[in-house]
Design a protein around this nucleic acid. Sequence first.
RNA 1: GGCCUGUUCGUCUAAUGGUUAGGACUUUACCUUCUCAAGGUAGAAAUACGGGUUCGAUUCCCGUACGGGCUACCA
Length: 492
Amino acid sequence: MILRTRYAPSPTGMLHVGGLRTALYCYLIAKQNNGKFLLRIEDTDRKRFVEGGLENILRSLKWAGIETDEGVVMDENGVIREKGDKGPYMQSNRLELYGKYAKELLEKGHAYHCFCTAQRLEDLRNYQNANKLASGYDGLCRGLSPAEAQERVSKGEAHVLRMKMPKEGETVFNDLIRGEVVFKNELIDDQVIIKTDGFPTYHFAVVIDDHFMEITHVVRGDEWISSTPKHIQLYKYFGWDVPQLAHLPLLLNTDKTKMSKRQGDVAVEDYIQKGYLPEAMINFVAFLGWNPGGEKEMYSMDELIKDFQIEKINKSGAVFNLEKLDWFNQQYIRNLSGDKMVELSLPWLVKAGLVKYNVDRAWISMVLSLEKERVSTLAQLPEALGFVFVLPEYTGDILIWKKSNESEVKEILPRLAEELNTVSVQQWNKDILQLVVGEWVKNNNFQNGSVLWPLRVSLSGQQNSPGPFEIASVLGKDESLRRIKLAIEKLL
RNA sequence: GGCCUGUUCGUCUAAUGGUUAGGACUUUACCUUCUCAAGGUAGAAAUACGGGUUCGAUUCCCGUACGGGCUACCA
């Protein structure tokens, strides 16, 4: 039997980083077993539908490199379509199927019509809370005879369908991550399975869909563990096999509460906008709650597919630690090839108004190499490289190296400019400049810092920057000498 | 409140019935160095608590504390 996993988000907003991790784990499990990874959309709550949410989810997954084998997919042109023979894969297009199976449950006596109003349910809940009683539906309509219920339905009375939970016994399941979990049936609610508007609830649709889509492994967030016995009961009523279950620990805020928007960015989109690379994001998120055991930390998608083990997923929640993400991202940026660096960075420079898209790529690659190993996100590039395009304002005093003095700088800089002027434009590159200046410093018995510091500051306009020869070669001879002249003027 | 669940450095985590409890991020010092970054070396930093079981428990069991999730006609 082929292994099939699914990620089944609701289009109620942008893809959450926790959702990304769930999708990733599902994907890894499928891929390492030559199985299929499906994407199903759970859009049964019409009130919470968010325009653009579905597009964002698909785009974010695509960005992350998680490819869907079946279900709802987005093609190269951003067009959303369905793929596979077990569709439709949008729950709102499966209403007929849910209706059919709800009816079956009703006929078998495993479900009943409930006419309780929202108001009565709310009053009941308030009463239970106030008296510190266990909350839940009190079963008022469970005792209604089918005939009476049918009569009220035909009169047009608003109603829902509830499943009948057994009053005795236990529901036991073996979670791949947590082991055996036991619930007493009497404490479990008669869950609504079909709402007044005719749409199924999550709990009903998920069982029907996972069954017909032949899902073998249900991997989802921890928040679903409490409702799992309801799902299992439905499988029993239908006589279907229960898939393997795995409940993932939650992603947490720094204060260890469930990760939320209030305390930072939770959407994958936010991290895309901040200049994180998909490889870094995937690597980081994979290690939140899972660890291969060795000391290797940099894992590509292919390596994750190879080494991932569902049994090694942790039980406890993991804090989403930005500092570690930054470190991963920095590592991945450093490992980028020159071409890839240009491809990924150019949009940021263009957006900041520093260059146009038709800028010389070989040159911009040199510019980028100045900061490639110094930034942790691509978003930092425009600010870090600004000095290349526009010399920052600065005062003459910062041209003086801490172990040097004003008069020495005044002597050195003009002479250095003369020396540099002897280097031809053709020879103007990092290595030759380093050689020439190095030789010159030695011959004149200067200290490195007395020369290199003011040179570097005059070229960058900053106390902290990349090295002088790298900058000079990027700026070219004319611009470099112009900046040095400007520096000399500041000293007068 | 009820149900479910979890707890190893600040964070992500490794490991085992016997280890100097390992790594990474963060952090500190030093080295390198014209500055920053990177790199190198060294350091600080953890088994929640109390009982058992055991020759021995961080590991197994029980309890306590604390945390988290769920408790909707939301997913």
